[in-house]
């Protein structure tokens, strides 16, 4: 299955660059959105099978809210630390990390308030995060721990990587993932503009 996942992404990238170089201009973002909403609708159907969902969320308790906080701090510290090797200043590396996989938002904010070059790096880093997350989820799923499964995805665990999380981690992971992505999406909006100005 993992090979299909990586293969599908790679085949897509190759197809896309081929389309681009042959001058065919298609906008598939709407198709992508529709498929995504359909899949999230399916995740909803799957979650609705569980009659004890309120109990489940109560049992998850504060942990469900502590995970996104740890993910945010971990992402910022991790990218700031690795940024040192690339000789990136703290404000740039930390703001890029605070994008938490949400590439469209973080790059737009950085482009408007800081620099287009760093915005391009922020965009690519968050695309790379999504690709690495797609590769890591099936691997981390072997651990049977839902928290680990949702850690790499950042803000994407409420949308683009949610169907994958549901498939590999089941309903428990999907609920955790949705809460995680929701809180992190709010944090991206707050953190990126603050960190880039440091």
């Amino acid at each position: 299955m993992t090979i299909f996942i990586i293969g599908a992404v790679l085949l897509g990238i190759i197809t896309g660059s081929f389309l681009q170089s042959s001058g065919i201009n298609i906008d598939i973002s709407q198709i992508a959105c529709l498929i995504l909403y359909f899949l999230i609708f399916c995740v909803g159907l799957d979650l609705g099978k569980n009659r004890k969902i309120v109990q489940d969320i109560q049992q998850l308790g504060t942990k469900a809210f502590l995970i996104p906080f740890n993910v945010a701090v971990g992402s910022i510290l991790g990218s700031a630390l690795f940024g040192l090797f690339l000789k990136l200043p703290f404000n740039e590396a930390s703001a890029i990390g605070a994008g938490l996989g949400w590439y469209s938002f973080s790059s737009i904010i950085i482009a408007q308030t800081y620099s287009v070059e760093i915005a391009a790096l922020a965009f690519l880093t968050n695309v790379a995060r999504e690709i690495l997350t797609i590769i890591l989820i099936p691997i981390l799923a072997k651990n049977k721990n839902s928290s680990l499964l949702i850690a790499p995805g950042g803000a994407t665990t409420m949308d683009t990587t949610l169907p994958l999380i549901n498939k590999y981690g089941g309903r428990q992971a999907a609920i955790l993932g949705f809460i995680n992505g929701f809180i992190l999406s709010l944090l991206v909006v707050i953190l990126v503009p603050i960190l880039i100005k440091l």
Binding site: G16, L19, Q20, I28, T160
Partner: peptide
């Protein structure tokens, strides 16, 4: 979806 996401990156 992953294939489409790949195309979006590629184009």
């Amino acid at each position: 979806l992953l294939f489409i996401m790949g195309i979006q990156i590629g184009v």
